[in-house]
């Protein structure tokens, strides 16, 4: 159909001219589907990502640390809300997206399937996981879909704050007692490679990337973002006296970047496939919260319906408001 082609061509020209696509604009089905998948995955990652950090809220070692961590995890819930709203503008309901998460159909960032074993993990998650997320999210501030781009601008501001808080925890531990320093190094050892994997498969093994780049959903390739992240993070580790657990890591004068060791892609794909250390726990926690909250949501819905019925028919009001 020539006309469809012409719409698609016009859409392509529109995004190439750096215009933002808005909910009411025509867009190719594939563009819509890709965005629903990506934005909802992103929203799920924020919500599931609350769990590994929430794991330490009740044990935070000072009142100040407890407040900072609690506020941070609360921010993640807020990010989940913005993102579900952004995805809803594409015509998929939040209930549907949540059902897909709980049934295991939708994915979330695999990094959250790793456990948080010590307090230093609160530092490592903030510094490395949020650091890697920011590299991706800064790029997404310029994504072609307007609502997603605007949500990202807001989220990036908070995430960079979180990253500084995480780095501050690592710095404090690295400067602290020998036990604290060992705790920090151990956390870096455990979180380094999973954080490097957060950018996804290498470019030659990432089938959806080309189309996403063409549509201006993505602006940089997985490998470009990964390299940026590593280049930036190595210096931060050196500054606080911690070592990156990669014997092959070394500065390459010629490229102006760090060379780094082989990524264990088997582990990456196994964790995505559900075989990571905490996949079942994370999903079970979300399912439990959802199932145990059902009667609460039902009550709120029932009450709201009664209220609106009372407002449209005040004579039947049953209680003194």
């Amino acid at each position: 159909m020539g006309e469809t082609h012409s719409l698609e061509d016009r859409f392509q020209a529109f995004v190439e001219a750096e215009n933002k696509v808005e909910p009411k604009h025509w867009m190719p089905d594939g563009y819509r589907k890709t965005l629903v998948r990506q934005i909802s995955q992103h929203a799920h990652s924020e919500v599931v990502g609350m769990l590994p950090e929430a794991n330490w809220i009740t044990r935070a070692p000072s009142l100040r640390a407890k407040l900072i961590l609690l506020a941070k995890v609360q921010d993640e819930a807020g990010h989940g809300l913005y993102l579900y709203s952004a995805a809803e503008t594409l015509g998929t309901s939040r209930d549907q997206m949540i059902d897909d998460l709980l049934s295991g159909k939708a994915k979330y960032s695999s990094i959250f399937n790793y456990p948080t074993l010590t307090w230093a993990d609160m530092g490592a998650v903030g510094w490395l996981v949020d650091g890697a997320a920011i590299a991706n999210q800064v790029m997404l501030c310029r994504t072609s879909y307007g609502p997603y781009s605007r949500a990202m601008v807001r989220i990036c501001k908070e995430e960079s704050f979180h990253q500084r808080q995480g780095y501050e925890i690592m710095m404090t531990l690295a400067k602290g007692s020998p036990e604290q320093k060992a705790m920090a190094q151990d956390a870096l050892n455990r979180w380094w490679w999973p954080s490097v994997m957060m950018f996804g498969p290498s470019d030659d093994n990432s089938p959806n990337s080309t189309q996403s780049m063409k549509w201006r959903i993505k602006r940089k390739s997985n490998d470009e973002l990964r390299q940026e992240y590593i280049d930036k993070t190595v210096a931060q580790a050196e500054f606080i006296g911690l070592s990156i657990p990669d014997p092959e890591l070394k500065w390459n004068e010629e490229t102006g970047h760090y060379d780094f060791g082989e990524i264990d892609w088997t582990e990456f794909f196994q964790v995505i496939a559900g075989n990571g250390p905490c996949n079942s726990e994370r999903l079970a926690a979300r399912q439990k919260a959802h199932n145990e909250g059902a009667w609460v949501r039902d009550a709120a819905t029932a009450y709201a319906a009664k209220q609106s019925a009372r407002q449209s028919n005040p004579s039947k009001q049953t209680h003194a408001a």
């Binding site: 919500v47 609350m50 769990l51 929430a54 809220i57 009740t58 009142l63 100040r64 407890k66 407040l67 609690l70 506020a71 995890v73 609360q74 819930a77 807020g78 989940g80 809300l81 579900y84 926690a285 439990k288 919260a289 959802h290 145990e292 909250g293 059902a294 609460v296 949501r297």
Partner: peptide, 29 residues
């Protein structure tokens, strides 16, 4: 209340209860 964080019946209420927790711990300080 902080024990609820991440486990609330719906995101909006998770956020609301966490707010109360933050206020109370801030007051405790």
């Amino acid at each position: 209340l902080a024990e609820w964080c991440g486990h609330g019946p719906i995101l909006e209420q998770d956020i609301a209860l966490t707010n109360i927790s933050l206020d109370l711990i801030g007051l405790a300080r």
